[in-house]
Design a protein around this nucleic acid. Sequence first.
DNA 1: TCCTTGACGGAGA
DNA 2: ATCTCCGCCAAGG
Length: 103
Amino acid sequence: MLELTDAQRFWQIIAQIPRGKVATYGQVATLAGKPRMARAVGRALSKLPEETQLPWHRVVNAQGRISFPIDSDAYKEQRNRLVQEGIVMSDGRVNFKQYRWNP
DNA sequence: TCCTTGACGGAGA
DNA sequence: ATCTCCGCCAAGG
């Protein structure tokens, strides 16, 4: 049997996050059957190629914030993508009440 | 090999 | 709401 690496499991979960919704690193880890491995999710995402089709921007931290330095290009890129699909961030946070993905 | 560093998060205080 | 501690673990130095 070919086995999936944890990173691949995470990618599979992330690929399912619908447009206009977000999931947290911990949520992705748990859904992938690897609770308490939120950091591993971040690692998996950091390994993605620039041209990836995966909706990596839909993953935010447990505070509803983007996990990149506020002044980095990566931060702006993620913010733009979220806004692009109708997700509004007030005070640098996404409101889970309306944007959290509940599979 | 040991130590530090992360796209993190939950439990306490 | 803020802060510290700790779990977790791959990568680099």
